[in-house]
Every structure is written in C-alpha cells, then in structure tokens.
C-alpha cells in the first residue's frame, strides 16, 4: 500500500515524521538495517529523491547512520530514541489540544475528558 500524505504539506517533512515514528514504535528496532532508498520509495510510492532527503535528515538527527559498504542502520542510542518519542508525543498533545479548542473545548475540559472525570 502506498503511504498516505497530505498533498499540501511537503512530503519530505511527512516522510521524516513517519520514519521517526516507525523507529520510536520499534517497527525498525535499534541497530536494524533499513531498506534502501529505492526499496522504501517503491513501498511508499514516493519520489526517490524525496526519500533520499528524508534519510539524510534522519542521519543529521542521529537516528540513522550509514555504514559505507553495508547500508543504513537505526541508531542504538536508546536515549536519543526516548527523546524523539517525547518530542513526537508533545507534538501529538499540541495537535490534540488545538483540535479540541477548535470545537470549543478548553484545555481543562479536555484533560477532564481524558481522565474520565466528565462522566
């Protein structure tokens, strides 16, 4: 199945987020070899240049490293993976609260609903 993207936001950014979350969730475990740019571009049905750029960004962030002859691997730095998890979680919370605000539910009420205190 091709991966789904918002066509009005850069695919590059969405690819990075998707791969970060695949690493954090353990779909790709620490130290695991990643598919090649071409393989993953075909799987996701995205432009190979965009996939290359996304891998480059993950390398810059330290989540992925390249071994010259054998390919790309997920980092084994569990602290970095935890930090990335936290960043992604905070982003999800912000988006959740923004969505609630849009339908007229403030932060306190949203928290009450989350913890089941609204019943």
């Amino acid at each position: 199945m091709p991966w789904n993207f918002d066509s009005d936001k850069p695919i590059f950014v969405q690819l990075v987020e998707r791969l970060e979350s695949d690493i954090v969730s353990g779909k790709y475990s620490p130290g695991e070899k990643l598919p090649t740019v071409r393989e993953l571009a075909v799987e996701a049905a995205v432009n190979p240049n965009t996939m290359q750029k996304a891998y480059g960004e993950l390398e810059r962030l330290g989540l992925v490293y390249t071994q010259r002859t054998s390919g790309r691997f997920v980092t084994e730095d569990s602290k970095l993976i935890d930090r990335t998890r936290k960043t992604l979680a905070e982003k999800n919370v912000r988006e959740f609260l923004a969505g609630m605000k849009e339908i007229g539910i403030d932060r306190d009420e949203a928290v009450r609903m989350l913890t089941g205190g609204n019943k």
Binding site: S7, D8, P10
Partner: peptide, 14 residues
C-alpha cells in the same frame, strides 16, 4: 512540487 507545498502550502492539484 515540494517548493509549492513548502512556500505556498499548496498541493499540485490545488
């Protein structure tokens, strides 16, 4: 196309 999305928040279709 990525520039269209990045600069203008527009998809190719838009």
């Amino acid at each position: 196309v990525e520039d269209m999305r990045d600069k203008n928040g527009k998809s190719l279709t838009d």
